[in-house]
Each structure stands twice: as C-alpha cells, then as structure tokens.
Amino acid sequence: MATRSLRLLTLGGVAVTLALAGCTDDGDAARGGTYTTAMLQAGVLQPADIGSTWKRPEQTPPPSSIMQLCPGAAARPPIPGSPAVVTGVLADEGDKGAQAFEQIGLLYKDAPAMEKAFTSLQDTMEACPPTASRSAGPAKESSEAGYTESITIDPLVSGGWKGFVTQRHKIYEPTYPGSADVAVAVVGQGNAIILTSYAVYWVGEHSTGPEFRTDWNRITGTVLSRVDAKRSK
C-alpha cells in the first residue's frame, strides 16, 4: 500500500505518521504476509484487557457494515468484498458518561483483494466533509440531542500495518450539554484489514484532553501487537 500511504500523508497538510504504542517494526520480512482467522481472533480484546468496569454486551449480531467514518448522520459503510469477519465489542457505562470499543478484522483471500477493499474504505474517508451539524429531531425519531461535529484525519503506520485514523469531536447543543470523541483506525497488511473504534461520551461540560489519544493509541496498539505475536509463533 505504499502509493496509498503517500496519498494519505497529504491529507490536511499532515506531514508525519502516527506510531501506535505497543507495536514495533519487525522489518520488511514481516510485512505483507498471510494472516489467518486464528491470528485475527488473537487480537480480540477481553473486558479485563481494558479495565475492570468494561463489559461485553450479551448479544452482538455479526456486522454487515464497518464503523462510521464520517461526521454527522453518515451511514456505516458496508463491509467491502467478501472477507471472513472477526469482531469484538466492549462497553463501559456510568452516570457521567460512557465508553465503547469495537474491533473488526477482515480476512481476504489474498493481498490484491485486501488492497481493493482498503481502497474503497479510503475513498469513503476522503469524501468525508470536515464538519457536520444536526438539529434535535422529534423524540420518537431520535433520542440524540442536536450537535456539531468535526473530523481530523491522520495517516497511521505501525510496523507493517499502514492506513489512517479519523478522529471526530462532537459538541451537543447547550440545552443538553455534553460531548463525544470517536477515533476509528483502519489499517491493512498482507491479506488482512483491522478496524478499531474507541468512543467516549461525556455528560456536561468537558474538554478533550491528551488522555483520549493516549487511550485509543494504547488499545489499538495492543490489538495489532497480539495479532502479530500470534503470526510470529
């Protein structure tokens, strides 16, 4: 994905890549290889891997789409191609807010199929508007208050994994003060694509601090390092 990565570096004037905590570059020999379902499954996090208050929902239906990439009421893009799918969903809810983590591993028959799928996801990302807003609708149609949401996009490189991360910041209308931050990472290597989504929802006034980036960086880095550790055995 070298040519696609160079294209990503130009988005928003970004001139650097982000490195994920917990991941190291094992050299060119480890890049572009073949992954298996068992390898992607090894990266699925358990509640205890993140924190004592996290839980796994009782029912998690198999997804037919990936995480929302764009701000506003954009639909979740469909899963591109015909991959085997590995998923995991975790949540932590409290009186002052909530956190959610979702991961999806997509396993394709070969690297060209992965490249084609990755390109479609990148095209969706590149078409995202920089901001979006929405007025509160009737209660029977939506329980979400009105908001304004912005997005930043950065290239993401960790070892042989290359892709991008979208970070969305949502501020709700003053009548229902609150905010939300969502980071969605999309990286590919060999015949696999891994997507992670880390979201934090705050009730009341709150400013995004450096801990949000630190947390999604650490969690996503843990997923990738476990997948690669399984592959190296």
Rank of each mutant, 00 (worst) to 15 (best):
Y108R: 04
Y108W: 08
D110E: 06
G33L: 03
L9D: 05
I50G: 05
T220W: 04
S64W: 09
A111V: 07
A117P: 06
A127C: 10
S232M: 08
I50F: 03
T214R: 14
Q167V: 15
V187L: 13
D92R: 11
T148Q: 13
V184A: 07
H206K: 12
L106M: 13
T53F: 13
I104D: 02
S82V: 10
Y172M: 10
V187R: 01
R76T: 11
Y201T: 14
P78S: 13
P129T: 04
A127N: 14
A38D: 15
S135P: 08
A229W: 00
A139P: 05
T175F: 11
G27C: 08
V184Q: 08
V200Q: 14
A132D: 11
P210C: 06
R31Q: 13
P47D: 10
S52Q: 15
S65I: 03
S65Y: 09
A42I: 01
A229D: 02
L107I: 04
T175K: 15
T37C: 03
Y198K: 01
I66P: 02
A48P: 08
Q99I: 06
R7T: 14
G12T: 09
Y198F: 13
Y108D: 07
I171D: 13
S64R: 14
G13T: 09
G22D: 01
A132W: 09
F118Y: 14
I193Y: 01
P130Q: 02
C23L: 09
E93P: 02
I50K: 06
S5R: 09
S5Q: 15
Q41K: 13
P80S: 04
C70K: 10
L18N: 11
E211F: 04
A84Y: 01
A38T: 11
T37V: 12
W161I: 00
P83Q: 01
P77R: 06
A74P: 05
W54N: 08
P61V: 01
A145W: 03
E211I: 06
G32H: 08
I104S: 04
R168G: 07
G72K: 09
G209P: 02
G190N: 02
R213P: 10
G94H: 11
A183M: 09
T37A: 14
